[in-house]
Design a protein around this nucleic acid. Structure first.
Length: 939
RNA sequence: GCUCGAAUGGUGGAAUCGGUAGACACGAGGGACUUAAAAUCCCUUGACCCGGAAGGGUUGUGCGGGUUCAAGUCCCGCUUCGAGUACCA
């Protein structure tokens, strides 16, 4: 009987569906295990061979855990909302709902062919009302909350307003956008609109006017993690800073908890480090400076409090509100010109600029340590969003200040003994402080560290400053001027935002004809007036406060992509619940994700947001765990191997790789599917595209050889390998094995189909252990030899150990060795072969199920138990130990295997060593190691 | 610039605690079976050297030092590549 993978895989795909093999329910009798993959957004390109890498790895682990007796949750779904899905729809001129649906179907079809153990009854799609109901619900909870700094957790905003009404801001410790001081009387005297504005300063989901990353091409604002090097991650379009009113999430309130939580979770050091850098905790000092000839004051933040005596000027960020306040009449024109010019520059231009620019405000600040006046400048090298948007400049010890001082010829005062600042600043936080003596305060002779501490103490005591911890982590901008996202469950009463009543959730996304974004930032939902009014009339009983004429009554923006992906792991636990995001009993059973697999690209996006989101839900007890993902494994990227042809400029002639230097050529990507071992299929190339129909070729050795490069796997590079083709040609089990065999799961590697034959051969060899050449079924009871048992127990040991560290590649090697040994031994023992099938089941489930059935089992191999190994089969009575001396001579010695190292050394010492090797020297030490080497130390 | 990671045959990669470097697979070469091809099976395969052969020797894990009886692995100093981040005061 031949190994017919097509029939076998088809049969088991059907059986699994019929038998609901992968359905999972809460079972208090069994320990739980939650395995999760980062869910995909269904792009139009379909799956390529890189996508299933993580799914296969987690599927193997999930199947293994199930065989170990765990109740395993292994769900899958789609991250269907957001920019990528919408961009694809726009490019293909279709409605995003249509393309998304189509793409999901395609993904599902492809996934089904690979044999995953997903429980599809738990599928979620972020764009379905039943799902985004709970995204909207969580947003509303955040709106109704503030972050209490005394309790270090979110609290209902009602508690906050009560306090305000009785005591004002006195004694309130809450995370806030800016510091406010109000008495109870002031608060109570405020109108509703003003009160609403004040509360925005504290709400966890709040409406704030701030500088945002505006991307005109995409027609939307973007969060910080969606912008890299001044351009959008998606599409690479320029991004400019613009002041806009946006919904934001007060992620910054959770900065310290996000940092502390990293200590409690099992993630790789590199991704934890990335998050630490992104959160960017920085301990420093805030110091207040007076403005000369004025009663104005402003505060700066510094980590180098020791350099107070080296301040020679101050700098304000152009966007800072202090700029207009501090600019003198004479300088106003110049400053305004500079500020306007800055506004026009893109973020990228600002970063690329090598020369420092700036302008003097005309005002001076008084250094509280020296009482001397220093000029206040404006420059775009100071960021408005960090610290206070103003700095004290110490050119001697900060390279940026140094460059600025040099550009504008400002003084430089060195403060560290022996440092040379004639060419560049001395930035290192080391050395002995000098030149730092004021009226009754001196830092001279102290180390930098001591000087910082002394200055902190001094400014605190004098009331001119305080110790301050700053975080780089900003609040997340939560509005997008886009169509394809969750609508905000918000309406407006005379400009005051109100939450749509909970019983009206979900607020469904309307169908609109014009869903394209606009460059001016007018949200597409503005076209859905009917929807807006219908919603208001249906849900708001008292709509008298809503302006019927001029104001659009609903929030027009939609939520960003990360909204839907922030709590999906909770929804998988209880996906059909209409009463709650997740039932608390169910949540307490599954608790958190035990093993999360996904790429590193989400380190500063999704993996921060969902930790934040979960912590918020945890504060109210909606999620029982503080951290959502206990262990995180990052799968590496599978890169593509692109091929090139070389067209001679201005012709339709193509020259082979080895001869291309003799011509003036342009390299052109060519579809890797019409290239074999870098040799181009000429006819297929001519048929590939009409413009190549009449192509001519300059060949070498009768062949056209293509060039190649390792690049990202993408449609535009024509290097995409579709898993469907691999499955058709070799079967899903071979694909699964080969993807794992390629290398360690966490490493990036190029896809190379060449090695796949090895895995395919291996499965055939497994099959041949069961079926002889003449069609005979070989397994029989009780024919195990000691060699058989040794081979199989060695395998159990290796595969079990590898499983816990996800070293699937070496396990597959071990399988190959074992199967080779069993074939050589002509093993027919049913028990041994059955064990082999059980071990293979997580890796190659289809063939394992088939063989399991043929061995006479009626249940699924998924429910078989994981085999345990027995040391006694692995032991040998004695082994030959070779002894070398002076690195040359050797002789051997028999030694028991279970002997201790010390005894082995003693035995070796006592052994009669042939004197001629020793040349009269005395043996002082013999070193024995497990691998049978003994070294002899002589005197 | 800063942070983290990596470097082993023609290729992907093994080597657990410092203990026979190159497992396993691909590719390549040779052979068997076959009219032939495919498929399958067997042998060789880091480099260099000695030998007719069996066999033996030297060298070898990016570079330079060090620790150790013993280093791919540990320590110090570099080089190159990759990833993240970047005017964060």
């Amino acid at each position: 009987m031949e190994y017919n993978f097509i029939e076998i895989e088809k049969k088991w795909r059907q059986r699994w569906v019929e038998r609901k093999t992968y359905k999972v329910t809460e079972d208090p009798q069994k320990p739980k295990y939650y395995v999760l993959n980062m869910f995909p957004y269904p792009s139009g390109a379909g799956l390529h061979v890189g996508h299933p890498l993580g799914y296969i790895a987690s599927d193997i682990y999930a199947r293994y855990k199930r065989m170990k007796g765990f109740n395993v949750l292994n769900p899958m779904g789609y991250d269907a909302y957001g920019l990528p899905a919408e961009q694809y729809a726009i490019q293909t001129g279709q409605h995003p709902a249509v393309t998304t649906e189509k793409n999901i179907d395609r993904y599902r079809e492809q996934l089904d062919r690979i044999g995953f153990s997903f429980d599809w009854d738990r599928e979620v799609r972020t764009c379905e009302p039943g799902y985004y109901h709970w995204t909207q619900w969580a947003f509303q909870r955040m709106f109704e909350s503030y972050y209490d700094l005394d309790l270090s957790k979110a609290q209902p905003i009602s508690k906050f307003t009560e306090h305000l009404a009785q005591h004002g801001t006195e004694g309130l410790h809450a995370a806030q956008t800016e510091e406010l001081h109000l008495t109870a009387a002031e608060w109570n005297a405020m109108g509703e609109a003003r009160q609403s504005q004040v509360l925005m300063n504290y709400r966890i989901a709040y409406l704030g006017e701030m500088m945002v990353n505006w991307c005109p091409e995409l027609g939307t604002v973007l969060a910080n993690d969606e912008v890299v090097e001044g351009v959008s991650v998606r599409g690479g379009y320029p991004v400019v800073q613009k002041k806009m009113k946006q919904w934001c999430l007060r992620v910054s309130a959770y900065a310290q908890r996000l940092l502390d939580g990293l200590e409690t979770i099992d993630w790789t050091d590199s991704i934890k480090e990335t998050q630490r850098n992104w959160i960017g905790r920085s301990e420093g000092t805030e110091v207040e400076f007076r403005v000369k000839d004025s009663d104005k004051k402003f505060t700066i933040f510094t980590t180098r409090a020791d350099t107070m005596f080296g301040v020679t000027f101050m700098v304000l960020a152009p966007e800072s509100e202090l700029v207009s306040e501090l600019t003198t009449a004479e300088q106003r024109q110049a400053v305004e010109a500079y500020v306007n010019q800055t506004k026009k520059r893109t973020e990228r231009e600002r970063q690329m600029a090598t020369e420092k620019t700036g302008v003097f405000t005309g005002s001076y600040a008084i250094n509280p340590f020296t009482d001397s006046a220093v000029p206040i400048w404006v420059s775009d090298y100071v960021l408005a969003g960090y610290g206070t948007g103003a700095i004290m400049a110490v050119p001697a010890h900060d390279s940026r200040d140094y460059a600025f001082a040099r550009a504008f010829n400002l003084p430089i005062i060195p403060l560290i003994e022996g440092c040379d600042v004639s060419e560049q600043s001395f930035d290192a936080k080391e050395g002995i402080v000098t030149n730092s003596e004021g009226k009754n305060f001196s830092l001279n002779g102290l180390t930098v560290k001591e000087a910082i501490a002394a200055t902190k103490k001094y400014v605190t005591e004098r009331g001119i400053g305080r110790v301050k911890v700053n975080y780089r982590l900003r609040d997340a901008i939560f509005s997008r001027q886009r169509y394809w996202g969750e609508p905000f469950p918000v309406y407006y009463e005379h400009g005051i935002p109100r939450m749509i009543p909970e019983e009206c959730l979900p607020l469904e996304l309307p169908e609109v004809k014009k869903f394209l974004p606009t460059e001016t930032g007018e949200p597409p939902l503005g076209n859905a007036e009917r929807w807006a009014w219908d919603t208001v009339n249906k849900c708001i009983t008292d709509n008298s406060k809503i302006d019927q004429k001029t104001v659009f009554p609903l929030e027009l923006n939609t939520m960003p992509g990360f909204a839907g992906s922030s709590a999906y792991y909770l929804r998988y636990m209880d996906p059909h619940n209409t009463e709650a995001l997740v039932d608390s009993k169910v949540d307490e059973y599954w608790r958190q994700v035990d093993l999360y697999i996904g790429g590193t690209e989400h380190a500063t996006g999704h993996l921060i947001y969902s930790r934040f989101w979960n912590k918020f839900l945890h504060d109210y007890g909606y999620s029982c765990e503080e951290e959502p993902f206990k262990k995180l494994v990052n799968q590496g990227m599978i890169q593509g191997r692109s091929n090139f042809v070389y067209r001679i400029q201005g012709t339709n002639r193509f020259v082979s790789f080895g001869l291309k230097d003799e011509y003036d050529v342009t390299p052109i990507h060519v579809d890797v599917n019409i290239v074999q071992n870098d040799v181009l299929d000429l006819e297929a190339f001519k048929a590939w595209r009409p413009e190549y129909h009449d192509a001519e070729f300059v060949l070498e050795n009768g062949k056209y050889v293509c060039g190649w490069a390792i690049e990202k796997m993408s449609k535009s590079m024509y290097n995409v390998v579709n898993p469907d083709h691999i499955v058709e040609k070799y079967g899903a089990d071979t694909l699964r094995l080969y993807e794992m065999f390629l290398g360690p799961i966490n490493m990036s590697k190029p896809w190379d189909s060449n090695g796949i034959d090895g895995c395919s051969r291996f499965l055939r060899k497994v099959w041949n252990l069961f079926w002889g050449r003449d069609g005979q079924f070989l397994p029989q009871e009780g024919t195990a030899t000691p060699e058989n048992l040794k081979s199989i127990h060695k395998l159990i040991k290796k595969v079990s150990e590898d499983m816990e560290v996800y070293a699937y590649n070496t396990s597959i090697s071990a399988f190959m060795i074992c199967v080779g040994e069993l074939a050589g031994q002509k093993c027919t023992d049913k028990g041994v072969l059955e064990t082999l099938v059980r071990l293979l089941a997580p890796y190659a489930p289809h063939i394992a199920e088939e063989l399991w059935e043929q061995l006479g089992h009626e249940d699924s191999v998924c429910d078989a138990s994981w085999p345990e190994y027995d040391e006694t089969y692995l032991k040998e009575d004695s082994e030959t130990i070779s002894i070398s001396f002076n690195g040359k001579t050797r002789f051997t010695l028999q030694m028991p295997t279970d002997i201790s190292r010390q005894d082995a050394e003693k035995l070796a010492l006592e052994a009669e060593l042939t004197p001629k090797y020793l040349e009269g020297k005395q043996v002082v030490k013999v070193i024995v190691v497990p691998h049978r080497i003994v070294n002899i130390v002589v005197k």
